[in-house]
C-alpha cells in the first residue's frame, strides 16, 4: 500500500520523504515490547507507512484504545470523529454521505434539533431494556417448560402402550390357564407399569400447567417488548432526522470543499455521486418513511472525494487515517494541509 505518486521507497516514519514539507511527527520505539508512540506534531501529519499496523488499529489508538501495540498522542477525538476516521472501504462498514456530513456538522459543534427528544427516548429505552433483563433472568424458562411437557408426553405414551400390552398378555395367559407363577409375574409387571404411568400422567399435567403459566408470563412481557420495539423505531427515525438536518447545515461548505480536494483519476466531474453509498447505515428501513436515496443530491465525485470533502469541512482535532490506494496526495503533510485536518498516513 504505497502511495501511487511517491518516488522511491517508503520513508522511515519519523522522517519526511519530501524536503519541502518536513513535518515534525515523532515516532519513538520506546522499547521492543512496548507500544509504538506516535505524536502528531506541529504540522499535524505523520507518515507511518513503514510500520506494520492496519488502519483500524490506528483509528482505535487515536480513539484512546489501549494495548493495541500503538498509542497516538493527540487531542480528544470529539464528536464526529468516529464516523470520519478512515476513508470509505478502509474502516468498517459503509457510511452514507448523509452520515458523513452529519458527523462533520457535529465536529463543528452543531447540534441537531432532535437531540433532546432523542436523549429522552433513549433513556426510556434503556429503562425498558433494564426491565426486560431483570424479568428475563429468574422465571419463565419457556424452552425448558416445553421440553418438560414433550418428555412427559412421550414417556406417558410409551408407558400407556406397555400397560396395554401387558394387559393383553395377561388376558391371553388367563384364557389358556397359564401357570399361576407366570400370571403373578406378569400381573406384577402390569401393576408396576400402571403405577409409573399414573406418576408420569401427574408429571405431564404439572408440566402442562407450568408451561401455561410460563406462556402467560411471556405473553405479558411481550407488551414490554412491543413498547421497546416502538421506542427503537422512534430512536432510529429521530437519528435519521437528526442526520438529515445536520447534514443539511454543512451542505454548502461541503459543496465548496468538493472543489478543493483532489478528484480521483477518471472521476473528474464523474459519476454523479449518487448510489455508491445510498443505504443509511444498513440496518433496515422499517418505520422509515424518508429512506430517500438522494444522499448525493447532485454532488459530484466518488466516495473518496466525498470523504475528503467531508473531512475538510469537519473540524477535527484528532487525526484521520489516510490509507488505501488512490490517496491522491503526495505526502502526509500535503494531505493534512489540503484536508485541514491532522493525518496519519499509512
Amino acid at each position: 500500500m504505497t502511495a501511487p505518486d511517491t518516488d522511491g521507497p517508503p520513508p522511515v516514519a519519523a522522517e519526511s520523504n519530501d524536503a519541502g514539507l518536513n513535518h515534525d511527527a515523532e515516532v519513538n520505539d520506546v522499547a521492543a515490547d512496548e507500544d509504538i508512540l506516535v505524536r502528531i506534531g506541529r504540522r499535524r501529519a505523520v507518515d507511518f507507512r513503514d510500520q506494520p499496523v492496519d488502519p483500524k488499529t490506528v483509528v482505535a489508538a487515536v480513539r484512546g484504545a489501549e494495548s493495541s501495540g500503538i498509542s497516538v498522542d493527540c487531542p480528544d477525538p470529539g464528536p464526529g470523529h468516529s464516523t470520519l476516521a478512515s476513508p470509505p472501504g478502509v474502516g468498517d462498514g459503509v457510511v452514507s454521505l448523509r452520515a458523513s456530513l452529519a458527523a462533520a456538522a457535529r465536529s463543528r459543534g452543531l447540534v441537531a434539533p432532535e437531540r433532546e427528544e432523542l436523549a429522552a427516548v433513549r433513556r426510556s429505552l434503556r429503562g425498558l431494556a433494564a426491565d426486560l433483563d431483570a424479568e428475563d433472568a429468574p422465571s419463565a424458562d419457556l424452552p425448558a417448560a416445553r421440553r418438560r411437557v414433550a418428555d412427559a408426553g412421550s414417556r406417558e405414551t410409551a408407558l400407556r402402550e406397555r400397560v396395554a400390552a401387558l394387559r393383553g398378555r395377561l388376558n391371553a395367559l388367563r384364557e389358556r390357564d397359564a401357570d399361576e407363577a407366570v400370571l403373578a409375574s406378569v400381573e406384577a409387571d402390569r401393576r408396576e407399569a400402571a403405577a409409573r404411568l399414573s406418576e408420569v400422567e401427574t408429571e405431564r399435567v404439572a408440566a402442562e400447567q407450568a408451561l401455561d403459566r410460563a406462556r402467560e408470563v411471556v405473553r405479558e412481557r411481550r407488551a414490554t417488548r412491543d413498547r421497546r420495539l416502538e421506542l427503537e423505531d422512534r430512536v432510529a427515525n429521530l437519528e435519521r432526522a437528526a442526520r438529515a438536518s445536520l447534514a443539511e447545515r454543512v451542505r454548502e461548505p461541503f459543496e465548496r470543499a468538493l472543489e478543493r480536494v483532489p478528484r480521483g483519476a477518471g472521476h473528474d466531474g464523474g459519476d454523479g455521486g449518487t448510489g455508491h453509498d445510498g443505504g443509511d447505515e444498513g440496518a433496515g428501513h422499517d418505520a422509515c418513511d424518508d429512506s430517500s436515496s438522494d444522499d448525493g443530491s447532485g454532488t459530484v465525485g466518488d466516495a473518496r472525494t466525498r470523504w475528503y470533502a467531508a473531512v475538510r469541512v469537519a473540524d477535527l482535532r484528532a487525526p484521520v487515517v489516510v490509507a488505501g490506494p488512490d490517496r491522491r496526495f503526495g505526502s502526509a503533510a500535503e494531505a493534512a494541509t489540503r484536508l485541514d485536518t491532522p493525518v496519519v498516513w499509512l
Binding site: 417488548r225 412491543d226 421497546r228 420495539l229 427503537e232 440496518a283 433496515g284 422499517d286
Partner: peptide, 12 residues
C-alpha cells in the same frame, strides 16, 4: 418478532 434485529433477520 419483537426487536429490530429479529425483524431484520425475519425480513432476510
Amino acid at each position: 418478532t419483537y426487536s429490530r434485529a429479529a425483524r431484520t433477520t425475519l425480513r432476510n
